[in-house]
């Protein structure tokens, strides 16, 4: 569990990072996808937060890019057991997007171009824990990695960081998403190894 091979990536064991249990380090960025890759032109892209009362808050690409931008450097952990450390992204904090949103909801269901969904507690999108990112490692986010924009919620397994994200439904009740309805854990904390239901 959490085995890091000495010399892997050319790094001595003393510098080897502490990985969540059951994860291995990869220098690559594997592409995982449950379906065909959507191609969304930026001039047709939009991001919509809808509250539990049905109020919608919309941003076009230009409106999103005009918001304050952040450059988080974070570790990411995929439930298929690879982890990648020190990844650098650029995008808008969910705190910024949720700032003017009037809601009493406790849950969020992210939904994507192409039909993917994933659920998480709304509080996990707040307090500097989540971003809507459009840039990876200094370049436009490629479509195979979720571009033009994806969710980035690095403290949870990476399936929660919805690729091609189109919006977020804020809900009073928890609504399990694509993988959460097919055996995967509802919350997905890599440090508690919450891979599957009941873990």
């Amino acid at each position: 569990m959490g085995i890091v091979t000495p010399g892997f990536q050319g790094r001595p064991r003393a510098e080897a990072p502490d990985l969540p249990p059951g994860q291995y380090l990869t220098p690559d960025f594997p592409v995982l996808s449950a379906g065909p890759t959507p191609r969304v032109p930026r001039d047709q892209w939009e991001f919509v937060i809808s509250s539990e009362t049905g109020t919608e808050y919309r941003w076009s690409w230009d409106e999103m890019m005009a918001l304050p931008q952040e450059t988080p450097t974070v570790d990411i952990h995929c439930v298929t057991r690879w982890s990648k450390l020190g990844t650098t992204w650029r995008g808008v904090s969910l705190d910024t997007l949720l700032d003017g949103v009037d809601t009493a909801a406790d849950y969020a269901l992210a939904h994507s171009y192409g039909g993917y969904t994933t659920n998480l507690p709304l509080e996990d999108l707040r307090d500097g824990q989540a971003w809507l990112v459009h840039t990876y490692d200094g370049d436009d986010l490629p479509a195979e990695h979720g571009g033009p924009a994806r969710l980035l919620v690095p403290h949870l397994y990476f399936w929660k960081s919805a690729k091609w994200v189109r919006g977020i439904h804020l809900t009073v009740e928890d609504t399990p998403g694509f993988w959460e309805t097919a055996g995967y854990h509802d919350y997905g904390d890599p440090w508690r190894e919450q891979r599957y239901q009941g873990d």
């Binding site: 592409v31 379906g35 399936w159 993988w179 995967y184």
Partner: peptide
């Protein structure tokens, strides 16, 4: 689609 947390089988006609 097998490069995913599970196997996803999609309709060859409508891709759902």
């Amino acid at each position: 689609y097998s490069h995913a947390p599970g196997l996803v089988g999609r309709c060859p006609t409508c891709v759902e």
